[in-house]
Simulated assay, not measured.
Amino acid sequence: MQIDEMHQGGTNVPVTRFSDVQLFRPSTEDGVIRYAAPLGRGIDLEAIQVNRRSDVLVVGFHGALTRETTELPRFERMATLLGSGHSLLFFSDPTLRLADNLQLAWYTGWSELDIRFILADWAVKAAEAVGAEHIIFTGGSGGGFAALQVSAFVPDSLALAFNPQTIISKYLVEGKYMGPQQRYVKVVMPEFSPVPPEKLTPAHDWASPLGERVAVPLTYTRPLENRVLYIQNSNDSSHMTDHYKPFRQVAESGPNASRIRFDLYEGPHAHVAQNQQVMDRGLAAAIDWLRP
């Protein structure tokens, strides 16, 4: 399908189905195409690709969704990034399909399925199909967490993360509410909860057995071959304290220090999505860093 024929959200784009995620073979044709393949539990991995024959493939992940008003699959900021002129690949978080009231799941997959490797594999194959030399994984908030995690498995890629969570067990809405974290544990990882999930508090350690799957700083304690551009609103106090600072401490003292950059900006005194100016500046900086 041609790009100008696509409806908002890609709802009218034909879907190419694969019988197994390992059999993913993306199209080399120009234009727009959607993909789906089964992951288990009756849930598909769903993606949409825009091929513009650029040297950069931008891979997008979404953050939390208001499920009452948002239909899945969700391909976030597609309209915005279409204006960049680059080839694009967007993933909808399949983990959200586990429950209608699950708003945020950080693209972790569920207990028996770590989907980071699958997402990385699809992105690499898509880049080859569209002729891209560089891959940028990007997202904000929960999507930023996914970008940091998946990029770690793709050498020479770059994670462009805006105001991301980096430690799921430290995510508190407005710095104090456990609701999304409790719901995630109840639906996605109930076997790791030491108490009924609805009674979880910050004092309960449910995340340690999952290690780096739910903690980006742990991922980056080992030598990696990707790059990171971490863009953070300095006025988002809870994310500065609970997510930015723990990751920066690991980054600057670890083996990947030369491959990680930080950029602080002054935004609203809240955890909100980055505006268009911040996003455009970040994408331009990421591309300049990747290109020789």
Rank of each mutant, 00 (worst) to 15 (best):
Q8D: 13
V13D: 11
P14L: 02
F18W: 09
S19R: 13
D20G: 05
V21A: 09
V21P: 02
P26Q: 14
S27V: 04
D30T: 13
V32F: 07
A36T: 03
A36M: 04
R41L: 14
R41F: 07
Q49C: 12
V50G: 01
N51A: 10
R52V: 03
L57V: 03
L57P: 00
V58P: 00
G60N: 09
H62T: 10
E68K: 15
E68Y: 08
T69P: 02
L72K: 05
M78P: 00
A79H: 08
A79S: 14
L82M: 14
L82E: 14
S87H: 09
L89S: 08
F90I: 04
D93G: 02
D93T: 02
L104S: 08
Y107F: 15
W110T: 04
I115T: 14
R116N: 13
F117C: 06
I118T: 15
W122N: 09
K125W: 01
A127R: 05
A129W: 04
A132R: 04
I135N: 09
F137Q: 00
A146F: 09
L148Y: 01
A159Y: 00
A161Y: 03
I167S: 13
I168L: 15
K170T: 11
K176W: 07
Y177E: 14
G179C: 06
Q181M: 08
V185D: 04
K186M: 12
P190Y: 04
F192D: 12
K199Q: 14
S208A: 15
L210W: 00
L210G: 00
L210E: 00
E212S: 10
R213D: 01
A215M: 09
P217M: 11
P217W: 12
P217A: 12
Y220A: 00
R222G: 03
R222I: 07
E225Q: 15
R227M: 11
L229P: 01
N233Q: 10
N233C: 09
D236Q: 11
H239A: 07
M240T: 07
M240R: 10
Y244E: 13
R248N: 10
Q249W: 10
E252S: 07
S253E: 15
L264G: 10
E266W: 05
G267C: 12
Q274G: 14
N275S: 13
Q277M: 11
V278N: 11
D280C: 08
L283T: 01
A284N: 10
W289Y: 10
W289T: 13
L290N: 06
R291L: 12
